[in-house]
C-alpha cells in the first residue's frame, strides 16, 4: 500500500488533485489552495456548521475531513450553487428574507439547507419526527434539521422563512 497517495476529486465540477501535507483539511484546501473562501472556518471542530459543503450529495463539515480523503468525490461549495449574477433559489430567498446579518455562517446555512431539502424529499426522518416513517416538514422539523448550523447574529427565524419559501417555490 503506497504511503501518502494523492487524491483526485472534483470541486464544483472541476477536476483537482491534492498530494501535499496529509494534515490539510478539506476546508483549508478549499479556502487556501482553491481560493474558494465561501466555505467558512468558524470553529474548525465540527461545532458550528460554517464550513458545510456537499460531498457526493451529503452535507458535511469540511473541517472534519481531510483533503486526501476526498479521492473520487464530488465536492460542491457555495460557489458551486450560484453566483451574485445567478443566485440559486435558496440564495435568492435568503436575500429576500434577510436570512443573515454578518454573513459569515451564511454559505454554510445555504449549503446545509440545499442538502437538507433533498434529505426531506427522500423522506429521511429527524429527531423530532412524530412518525419516523412519515416526517412532515413542519417548522420544528426544519429547525431541528438546520440545528447543525449556528448563527450568532440570530437570523434563525429569517433563515427558516427563506428555506420555507425556497421549498414552496420548488413545488
Amino acid at each position: 500500500m503506497p504511503l501518502n497517495p494523492p487524491a483526485n476529486f472534483r470541486v464544483n465540477g472541476k477536476a483537482c488533485r491534492y498530494s501535499g501535507d496529509a494534515r490539510r483539511s478539506l476546508l483549508d484546501f478549499l479556502r487556501d489552495d482553491m481560493g474558494l473562501y465561501g466555505t467558512k472556518k468558524g470553529c474548525d471542530h465540527g461545532q458550528c456548521g460554517a464550513c458545510t459543503v456537499i460531498v457526493d450529495g451529503s452535507r458535511v463539515n469540511s473541517c472534519l475531513t481531510l483533503a486526501v480523503m476526498q479521492d473520487g468525490c464530488e465536492v460542491t461549495t457555495i460557489e458551486g450553487l450560484g453566483s451574485p449574477e445567478a443566485l440559486s433559489v435558496l440564495q435568492r430567498a435568503f436575500v429576500t428574507h434577510d436570512g443573515f446579518q454578518c454573513g459569515y455562517c451564511t454559505p454554510g446555512q445555504i449549503c446545509s439547507a440545499t442538502a437538507m431539502i433533498e434529505e426531506l424529499a427522500q423522506g429521511w426522518p429527524s429527531h423530532v419526527s412524530a412518525d419516523l416513517n412519515n416526517p412532515v416538514p413542519s417548522d420544528d422539523e426544519l429547525r431541528e434539521r438546520m440545528s447543525g448550523n449556528l448563527c450568532r447574529c440570530g437570523a434563525y427565524p429569517n433563515i427558516l422563512a427563506a428555506i420555507r419559501d425556497a421549498m414552496e417555490a420548488a413545488r
Binding site: G46, G49, T52, R59, R145
Partner: peptide
C-alpha cells in the same frame, strides 16, 4: 428498530451524522 434510529438522530448534527 425505531429506538436505534431515534438515538442516532438525537446525536450531533446532520452534517456529522452524514460522515
Amino acid at each position: 428498530y425505531p429506538l436505534l434510529a431515534r438515538a442516532i438522530l438525537a446525536g450531533a448534527s446532520p452534517q456529522l451524522r452524514n460522515r
